[in-house]
Design a protein around this nucleic acid. Structure first.
Lengths: 115, 115
DNA sequence: ACCTAGTACTATATAATGCAAGGTACTATG
DNA sequence: CATAGTACCTTGCATTATATAGTACTAGGT
């Protein structure tokens, strides 16, 4: 595949991943109290790459929207960490997003099958 | 659900849909030669809403990247239409994007299952 | 005591892009 | 010839992922 085409499809892949970013982050937080590096590590295990510069703004938005809260926890390895967990609102939002994901999923898969 | 939360999840839904836009458009074009209004109508049937202001720039990008070509076709209902079809490059890109979609799909669904 | 490395959070600047809104131009009809 | 319907295009705005740089804390070596 030509480099130009690869760039195009890479960008398209990035767009697809973007769409699922917040859902992914909320899913990880819903599983366990985690701090930023945990989230990056866990998502990497699912091939859903996220970098610091992307994650921190997302966490801020989620915090502002009161979908998550955090508690500071001291660390002996460096500065204190913010451990995040879902609020009730966050759980409600996550449920909604999962349903949205399921619907889009259904639509695209039908489209793929039918064409 | 509060309005504020609804706005947030609506926005998140829009993000998810965005990620699949180009894939959706290419899928529709791969099925049949179509012009813009056809694409909008067909995607609407799958609950994948696209509007003119979104679609035309996408079609321009796809054309510039030589993933699609078009031929002008006269219409007795108004101005001539651009009927789009995939190029070989376009078919290659589509194959790649379908695979990307499948991978992300797998990742998210695993994540949903495991948490 | 100081410096370096590693870790964690924050802030800023940039680029991409979905979308609303408004514009141009073609055909057919009254 | 004016209006309605259709089709394509452009401009401006807002959102947001990402790169980059910065601050601050701990631990360990010299």
């Amino acid at each position: 595949m030509s480099n130009e085409l690869k760039n195009y499809t890479d960008n398209s892949a990035a767009q697809m991943r973007k769409g699922t970013l917040e859902l992914s982050v909320l899913l990880v937080i819903s599983d366990d109290e985690v701090y930023a590096s945990d989230i990056i590590t866990k998502l990497k295990a699912y091939d859903l790459l996220v970098v610091e510069g992307t994650l921190y703004p997302i966490l801020s938005r989620l915090k502002d929207a009161e979908l998550v809260t955090y508690t500071w926890v001291e660390s002996k390895d460096g500065p204190p960490r913010k451990y995040y967990k879902l609020t009730p609102r966050g759980k409600e939002a996550l449920g909604q997003m999962k349903e949205t994901w399921s619907n889009i999923n259904k639509s695209i898969n039908q489209l793929i099958k039918n064409v």
